[in-house]
Design a protein around this nucleic acid. Structure first.
Length: 948
RNA sequence: GGGCGAAUAGCUCAGCGGAAGAGCGCCGCUUUUACACAGCGGUGGCCGCAGGUUCGAACCCUGCUUCGCCUACCA
């Protein structure tokens, strides 16, 4: 019945973890059934990009999700956690293209679309499998049977359906507008995919001669991009700028081109400021409508022509002097400047901070261009999302993220969804030779306008976030009305990183509300960002990356360095140097549980979690502590009968037989369960983790196990003394059942070690076969026990006081000194008598318990525990009277300061009048207590003094 | 430029209206029928600065300072 199999002194996670993953999956414990009548609880895992492997950010988010899903599953919910992978269109493109360039020196155009797609699929297979392996190693209880991919058949169908519906409703349209062009990847990117930063550049002032002006009059314009002058179609001045009134309606002789362009008066407000700003530079602005979003807007207002002079590859083109055609933007800039200089038209060059947009993925400088693209009309969709959040249908945790979401949604722009890439969902629009467009779910055989059969599908694909936006319902079978969809939509929680609120959360809200008429999730929990211990973002080039799997399994420095050679980042030597600096000894294996618990315990809800291997080691130690406490217990369960104990504890008479320490421990356990429950309800993961931590370290290990030890010992008198034998059984039972409950409490955080221990614990037969399908502990008020807590508190205080005195006076550890425990309180006296033996053992003292009024021997040290309790330690010549005086004086000082504070407070009539009555009463009793303390301490001080 | 957040022990962070807390570190002591990945004892705070509200402020309000993030089409 009980196993006392020898366990190793140190917990060895690697073998244990592999075993339980297999066991859980093979038994189908992760799988949910949509036809189950129980209340559903669902979470969709943010699908990791197929480009990557699991990084520490995933580990954090997924661990929190697994904690929630395991917790709810154990509470009897029909818990479903949806796994999947995202095709990550542009991210794959950039990486794959780089790879092909490096290995074969070819572009994607050299390979062709079919070959490129084949390679991307191969990549997906390899990378996707690796990600799911990693997720399994972390113990994530994902419902693997439901696993999906954003480019699988179901998702493709959902994408086409959504596109067609939105098109038919007029919410998807095609239009020529200003877009962000990435000339390296040769595709549009959305505003969100552009990172704008100030870079060092110049501001050049150029002289634009006025047509027909006497003595060479000219207008000076300032620009950061002189090459775009080739596409200028006007010069704008503020309509009320007096300097230029006389030039309204006149023309400029545009240098280098021979074209004439008008001078136009403009008076508009932009972001609350007048434009053009007469105070900036000369107050005149060159206008290039085709290559500047600002200028495009002006051209629409002033009805100016548009001249495109840059092509898709970022080279000069169009109606410009032939010498510039084919030059890159950079080269053209130099050439234009040189030519202007030669013509004596370049007036000034000064250094200037230029805001420059770069493609998040390729790093290319973004070229604003005018192009025909597909768009989603965002406003009507966003309005529904705004309303839903306002009505509290979706809540953000932490709450302050709500504002970010609302602000962006309120100012939302139309969403450009077409991309000139290959890896993704091809747009279901078909063109005939007459230029008609047919949008359809299945490839049409004829144009719906002219019936032409010569149809060609749009070459473009959709933004990767289009399919992601449908993910919460496309994964459940939409557009079919499936049972899974009815059961698990909306999800209860979405856990994700704050940096994709706009990319993803916003799109899911819009799409979910539009197609499902319901929000996709009730709560959005936004995770912190994991950084290194110095608060620096983790990056491969800095060598400060913590790879979750290295933490779990360990890695030598050699392995880490070899990996750099395989990955080949730009600065291999630099990365290696950083690695050697940060992780000179490699990484010790910590196990999944340690990493998971660390992530939970450090997740206090701030913006950052500063993580280092050393910090994970703290929680590895915790897991080991638990392992050893369990090991101790398992060594002491001989003769224990769990069924008998179960029957006993459930009967009033049995409960009455519990000792004070048992009642105390069970009270603490139920309080801890309550804390964990409340904390998880509020997404306070760190509070939940720490409540368990303190229960295990302080209550269970430091006190209960120590108290229990003498009673667990096998000895001959157990046979003779049935009462002792019976109590031993109770102690075994309380220890076993407390450990069993603790495993259930801790299981969502540290699933492996808890399952391993739980399986070995002696426990009643009717429990399920696995810890993960047991019932999560609930706080049971029936076990509250203030009386027992009071008694144990006295015990703890007395023991601590004895230890303090011993250590203050350097009593040799082996020497059992005499102490007098003096109390004026009868119940305290009884408590001390009960724990007499235990106290003597744990504090290494020989204790005499006395009542009030006894005098102290000269030369004794005294610790005042409370107004009714003191510990006297006569030490003969051992104590140093000076040190004892100083110690007591310090305590008196502290109490006197308190007394003075309280007296001041109580002396104020306003306090008595306005503060709540119980507060006043509390202060009064505190005053009495402190005064008694000072009296005791002062007496002690006199005793020491008289000993001189 | 606009917005959001943070400042509490040497470090990392809880606490958010009624006695300043934890973990780590640091200083001692200890190998004792679980655990040295341990135990025991101790040290350590103008709760960023200045005002205000309140009987009472680390906590609420207003400024300021310093750090972080997002976000923005000033030539």
């Amino acid at each position: 019945m009980t196993s006392t199999s020898a366990l190793s002194k140190q917990y060895e996670p690697t073998e244990v973890e592999a075993r339980w993953i297999r066991y859980w999956i093979e038994n189908g414990f992760f799988h949910s059934d949509e036809t189950s009548p129980t209340v559903p609880f669902s979470i969709t895992l943010p699908p990791p990009n197929v480009t990557g492997s699991l990084h520490i950010g995933h580990a954090l988010g997924s661990t929190m999700q697994d904690i929630l899903i395991r917790w709810k599953r154990m509470q009897g919910f029909n818990a479903m956690w949806m796994p999947g992978i995202d095709h990550a269109s542009i991210a794959v493109h950039v990486l794959l293209e780089k790879d092909i360039k490096r290995r074969e020196n070819k572009t994607r155009f050299d390979l062709g679309r079919d070959e490129f797609m084949a390679r991307a699929w191969k990549w997906k297979e390899r990378s996707g499998n690796r990600i799911s392996e990693q997720e399994k190693l972390m113990g994530f209880s994902l419902d693997w049977a439901r696993e999906r991919f954003t480019m699988d058949e179901g998702s493709n169908r959902a994408v086409r359906e959504a596109f067609v519906q939105l098109y038919e409703e007029g919410l998807i349209f095609r239009a020529k507008r200003m877009i962000n062009w990435d000339p390296v990847s040769e595709t549009v990117v959305s505003d969100l995919e552009v990172d704008t930063a100030e870079e060092n550049g110049s501001l050049w002032s150029i002289k634009y001669p006025i047509v027909g002006a006497k003595n060479g009059e000219a207008i000076i314009v300032a620009t950061t991009r002189p090459e775009t002058m080739l596409g200028d179609t006007a010069v704008a001045v503020h309509a009320k700028d007096e300097r230029y009134l006389e030039f309204h309606g006149k023309e400029i002789e545009l240098p280098l081109t021979g074209r004439r362009i008008p001078i136009v008066p403009i008076d508009i407000m932009r972001e609350g400021k007048v434009w053009p700003d007469p105070a900036f530079g000369s107050g005149a602005v060159k206008v290039t409508p085709a290559h500047d979003p600002n200028d495009y807007e002006v051209s629409q207002i002033a009805n100016l022509p548009i001249l495109e002079v840059i092509d898709r590859t970022g080279k000069m083109a169009g109606e410009i002097p032939t010498k510039y055609i084919g030059m890159t933007v950079e080269t053209a800039r130099k050439a234009v400047l040189a030519d202007l200089e030669a013509a004596e038209l370049l007036v000034e060059t000064k250094p200037y901070k230029v805001p420059r947009g770069r493609s998040q993925r390729s790093g290319a400088v973004i070229e604003p261009m005018l192009m025909e693209q597909w768009w989603v009309k965002a406003k009507p969709l966003a309005d529904k999302a705004l309303a839903a959040v306002e009505q509290g249908k979706t809540k953000f945790v932490p709450e302050h993220h709500t504002k970010t979401f609302m602000h962006w949604m309120t100012n939302i722009q139309d969403w450009c969804i077409s991309r000139q890439l290959w890896w993704g969902h091809q747009i279901p629009a078909y063109y005939c030779e007459n230029g008609h467009v047919t949008v359809a779910r299945e490839a049409p055989t004829a144009c719906k306008e002219c019936n032409s059969a010569a149809l060609k599908q749009d070459e473009d694909i959709l933004d990767t976030w289009f399919s992601s936006g449908l993910w919460p319902f496309s994964t459940l079978g939409w557009p079919d009305k499936t049972k899974a969809l009815r059961t698990f939509y909306p999800n209860d929680v979405l856990v994700t990183a704050p940096d994709i609120i706009f990319f993803w959360v916003a799109r899911m809200m819009m799409m979910g509300l539009h197609f499902m008429k319901k929000v996709p999730f009730k709560t959005v929990y936004l995770t912190s960002t994991v950084t290194d211990e110095n608060g620096k973002k983790m990056s491969k080039t800095k060598g400060n990356v913590i790879d979750p799997l290295d933490v779990v399994n360990g890695a030598t420095l050699e392995v880490l360095l070899d990996r750099v050679d395989v990955e080949r980042p730009p600065d291999i030597d630099g990365v290696k140097k950083q690695l050697k600096k940060h992780m000179p000894k490699g990484i010790e294996a910590m196990g999944s549980d340690a990493l998971r618990f660390a992530l939970a315990a450090l997740n206090t809800g701030g913006s950052y979690i500063k993580l280092s291997i050393d910090r994970v080691a703290i929680y590895r130690n915790f897991i080991n502590k638990l392992w050893n406490a369990s090991r101790f217990a398992l060594m002491n369960f001989d003769g224990y009968d769990p069924e008998r104990f179960e029957a006993q504890i459930n009967a009033p008479s049995g409960r009455a037989a519990l000792g004070v320490p048992e009642r105390w421990l069970l009270a603490r356990l139920q309080a801890t369960s309550g804390d964990v429950q409340a904390s998880l309800e509020a997404f306070r993961f760190a509070d939940a983790a720490n409540a368990i931590w303190h229960f295990i370290y302080d209550d269970l290990c430091d006190w209960y196990i120590e108290i229990a030890k003498p009673h667990l010992r096998q000895s001959d008198d157990l046979v003779q003394d049935p009462q002792k034998a019976a109590y031993r059984h109770i102690v075994q039972g309380v220890l076993a059942s407390t450990l069993e409950t603790t495993m259930r409490l801790l299981h969502p955080f540290a699933p492996f070690v808890t399952e391993e221990i739980w399986q070995k614990l002696p426990k009643p037969q009717q429990l399920p076969e696995s810890l993960m399908i047991t019932v999560f502990p609930r706080a049971d008020e029936g076990w509250r026990d203030p009386a027992a807590e009071g008694e144990i508190k006295v015990l703890q205080d007395v023991v601590t006081a004895c230890r303090m005195l011993r250590q203050t006076y350097n009593v040799p550890p082996k020497q059992h000194v005499d102490v007098e425990l003096r109390t004026s309180d009868d119940s305290q006296r009884r408590t001390l008598e009960t724990f007499h033996d235990f106290m003597q053992k744990i504090a290494s003292v020989r204790a005499t318990i006395t009542g009030a009024g006894a005098g102290s021997a000269a030369g004794s040290a005294k610790a005042i525990v409370s107004s009714t309790l003191e510990v006297v330690m006569p030490l003969g010549g051992l104590i140093d009277p000076t040190a004892e005086k100083a110690r007591l004086a310090k305590e008196i000082e502290k109490s006197k300061k308190e007394i003075s504070n309280i007296e001041t407070k109580l002396a104020k009539p306003e306090f008595i009048a306005r503060a709540p009555e119980d507060e006043v009463e509390k202060q009064r009793s505190r005053l009495v207590e402190e005064q008694a303390m000072v009296q005791r301490l002062t007496e002690a001080l006199h005793t020491v003094e008289s000993a001189r």
